[in-house]
Lab assay of single mutants.
Amino acid sequence: GTLHLNGVTVKVPSLEKAIKAAKKFAKKYNLEVQVHGNTVHVH
């Protein structure tokens, strides 16, 4: 999967790991997580 954090793109081995990391990051910075196919966006 691919993880987008505020314009930074990170390749992640699995989508589940990407979503987990995204949710952790989003919670910390009070951001929103959106999943588009195998790409996770945090903004």
Rank of each mutant, 00 (worst) to 15 (best):
K11E: 10
E32H: 12
N6K: 06
V12A: 05
N30C: 14
K27A: 11
K17F: 13
H41K: 08
G37L: 06
A21N: 04
H41S: 15
H43F: 14
H36P: 02
G37S: 05
H4P: 02
G37K: 05
F25Q: 01
K23V: 10
A26S: 02
V40D: 02
I19V: 07
G37A: 05
L31G: 04
V33I: 14
G1Y: 15
V33Y: 06
V42M: 11
Q34S: 13
K17Y: 13
L3I: 12
N30Q: 06
V12T: 07
T2V: 13
V40Y: 01
V12S: 03
Q34C: 14
N30E: 06
K23R: 12
F25P: 00
A22T: 02
L5A: 05
V33A: 01
E16S: 10
T2A: 06
A21C: 15
P13Y: 10
Y29W: 10
V12G: 03
A18F: 07
L3V: 08
H41T: 13
L5W: 15
I19G: 00
S14A: 05
T39E: 14
K23W: 09
K17I: 13
T39N: 09
K24Q: 09
K11P: 08
E16W: 10
N38W: 15
E16F: 05
N6L: 15
L3A: 02
L31T: 03
A22V: 15
H41E: 13
E16L: 07
V35N: 00
S14P: 03
T9G: 04
T39Y: 11
V35H: 02
L15K: 01
E16N: 08
L15M: 08
K17W: 14
A21E: 08
V35R: 01
A26D: 01
A22F: 10
F25G: 01
K27Q: 12
K23L: 13
T9V: 15
A21F: 13
H43E: 05
H43L: 13
T2P: 04
K23H: 09
A22L: 15
H43C: 14
K23C: 11
G7H: 11
H4V: 15
V40N: 01
V35M: 04
V42A: 04
L3N: 02
K28W: 10
P13M: 09
N38A: 05
V10Y: 15
T9E: 09
H36L: 13
P13C: 14
L5K: 03
A18L: 12
L15I: 11
T39M: 10
L3P: 03
V40A: 04
K28S: 01
G1E: 10
K27F: 04
E32F: 09
V33Q: 02
V12P: 01
A26M: 07
T2M: 12
L15R: 01
A18Y: 05
N6E: 04
G1M: 11
K23F: 08
K17N: 10
E32W: 10
S14K: 04
L15A: 02
V12F: 15
H36C: 04
V8K: 11
H4A: 05
V8C: 14
